[in-house]
Write a protein that binds this DNA or RNA. Structure first.
Length: 197
DNA sequence: CCCTGATTCGC
DNA sequence: GCGAATCAGG
């Protein structure tokens, strides 16, 4: 397969939509994700706000620091070495559905930033709960000793009885739970707004 | 081990 | 230009 105009267009489209290289490769067919990534680079469209790229970006920067950029180091007062970053949401893990770009090195963010479909990541969606309910049906019912790094560790049932097991479904990226359970495990905001008395 | 993208380098 | 191999990270 070659990179015809149409295929490139589809590549651009999907990449812009935030699809992963493997997904794009699968959709295109006849190419591997490596081919897709390679093409993406050659096309010049690269940086997309992703965790991997972000982490790698810092590495790359450190490695090939030839660009004459000024690292802003505003430290007029050498009193405190480390600036205490205000983290009000310490209690809530709150995984941002939209990973904001840590810092645009060079205005690389296109104007029409295509955001991935984000229905409404707020509150606990009934769908998520239903999903969990369904997941529990086909959970692998693993025992504690059967859990591995990539098995969902969501407990199901009553630990005091025999009706207790762990979900055990495959997790993906370093998360402790499967997709469904991640949805209910991490709830950015509580349904309670303000405690009023 | 599953996945992600980034980079390299022979073709 | 292409992409497999490799690298680096979650």
């Amino acid at each position: 397969m070659s990179w015809t105009d149409e295929r490139v267009e589809l590549l651009k489209k999907m990449w812009g939509e935030g699809q992963s290289a493997s997904q794009i490769a699968k959709e295109l067919g006849g190419v591997t994700r490596n081919a897709v990534i390679g093409k993406v680079h050659r096309l010049g469209l690269s940086n997309r706000a992703t965790s991997a790229s972000a982490a790698d970006a810092s590495k790359t920067e450190a490695k090939a620091k030839a660009a004459p950029k000024k690292e802003a180091a505003p430290k007029p007062k050498p009193k405190e070495a480390a600036a205490p970053a205000p983290e009000p949401a310490a209690a809530a893990p709150a995984p941002a559905p939209r990973p904001a770009v840590s810092s645009a090195r060079k205005a690389i963010i296109p104007a029409g930033q295509p955001l991935p479909p984000q229905p409404s990541a707020n509150e606990i969606s009934p769908e998520a709960l239903a999903k969990v309910n369904e997941v529990e049906k086909k959970s692998k019912k693993l025992g504690l000793l059967e859990l591995t790094e990539r098995t969902c560790k969501w407990p199901v049932g009553d630990p005091a009885t025999e009706d207790f097991w762990f979900c055990g479904l495959p997790v993906q990226a370093g998360k402790p739970y499967c997709e469904a359970h991640v949805g209910v495990a991490f709830q950015p905001m509580s349904s309670r707004r303000d405690r009023r008395r």
